[in-house]
Design a protein around this nucleic acid. Structure first.
Lengths: 196, 196
DNA sequence: AGCCTTTAGCTAATCACGTTAGCTTCAGTG
DNA sequence: CACTGAAGCTAACGTGATTAGCTAAAGGCT
């Protein structure tokens, strides 16, 4: 076997770090090669294309996000689990905006794409968290989608610099979590009459 | 003055239509030129660069979105205004996913960028709608951000094909609107103790 | 009506990437 | 100590954005 300086994994890791610095849109093979102290074409010994590289970053990101959220929810339930999970996700996106963008930009390449189970693990964590609210079974899917929407929306708006006014974004986020929490608790108490 | 077949405005309009068809990421000067029955370099007589073209699409999109939302809210208040505004926005995004992506991808180029007032008009509509809920003044900014987050998050997730499970997405959206409506009404009734 | 200026659109050329082809060299194996 | 295989390199190609310079037609002016 030869030198073995770079590997697909190490290249992906470096690309993920790069993308968090310069933004997902500014990822280029040349820039990555420079960071790795190598000439551009050499990268193709480890990844087949820039598209594949982006996809690898996406899988990495979704997996990391799944871990972070699962760990945050671990051992908590109800409001605590919601707050911890949501904060964990926001923190992850703030620390890894490029990775998060990569994960959002990708689409499963096929039925056995590892991106699929990685995504399912994230959803499973949210589902586990929601189960603590005793919602009507028919409402769970809607609650899940609403939850995903707020968290994803807040994270992307924040990452895009969408919150201009000089009111604390942290405060807005805890307000948001509280808002969702109250709604979920009320919905559970009220039963299915929330849905129209 | 010469022929005047194309104008900056007509090029932008064609680009916006194109982007809704092929996706914002797939916008290319060559493809647009082909649609307009012109050679690629000719486009530079009307727009200075692809970046500027993308920005023009963004301004157009944000302006259109502002109009659509304002019109929907017109004459309604409270729950009705929320539902109408939210539905109008979702419809706009579904019909113009490329434009919406362009608007999200852009960043103001300066203090006199028309994108800024266009964005402010959207925010003003949401603010007008929220004013119907009699929220505590200190809460309004958080409610606004939460509202923007859910709507933006839902729209982008839907556009990205993020809702896989075969439960009606329409139904989820009305559930979401209802969820927000109930929360806002409860928050108004309860006063500032929602915020922590 | 006929000239003149202005400029839309064209062709040819340049530049920046992503990607491919083929060569070279070193690490580990026999 | 030669041998093989893959890492990394240089050279080359293709595509898409952009620029330079030419051509010609439209509208104004006399």
């Amino acid at each position: 076997m030869p030198k073995a300086r770079l590997t697909p994994a190490s290249v992906t890791e470096a690309a993920a770090a790069l993308v968090d610095e310069v933004g997902f849109d500014n990822l280029s093979m040349g820039l990555l090669a420079e960071r790795l102290g190598v000439k551009t074409p050499s990268l193709y010994k480890h990844v087949t294309s820039q598209a594949e590289l982006a996809h690898r970053i996406a899988v990495l990101a979704r997996t990391e996000a799944g871990d972070v959220i699962r760990d945050a929810i671990q051992g908590r339930s109800g409001s605590d689990a919601l707050a911890a999970g949501a904060q964990a996700m926001r923190t992850y996106v703030r620390e890894h905006p490029g990775r998060y963008a990569a994960a959002n930009a990708t689409r499963p390449t096929g039925p056995d794409d590892p991106f699929i189970p990685a995504s399912e693990r994230v959803l499973a964590s949210w589902a586990a968290m929601l189960s603590g609210y005793d919602l009507d079974p028919g409402q769970e899917i809607h609650a899940m989608r609403t939850l995903r929407s707020v968290l994803h929306g807040f994270a992307t708006l924040e990452a895009a610099g969408g919150f201009q006014i000089d009111a604390s974004v942290d405060e807005s986020f805890t307000w948001l979590i509280n808002f969702i929490d109250q709604g979920l608790r009320a919905g559970a108490a009220r039963g299915s009459d929330v849905a129209r």
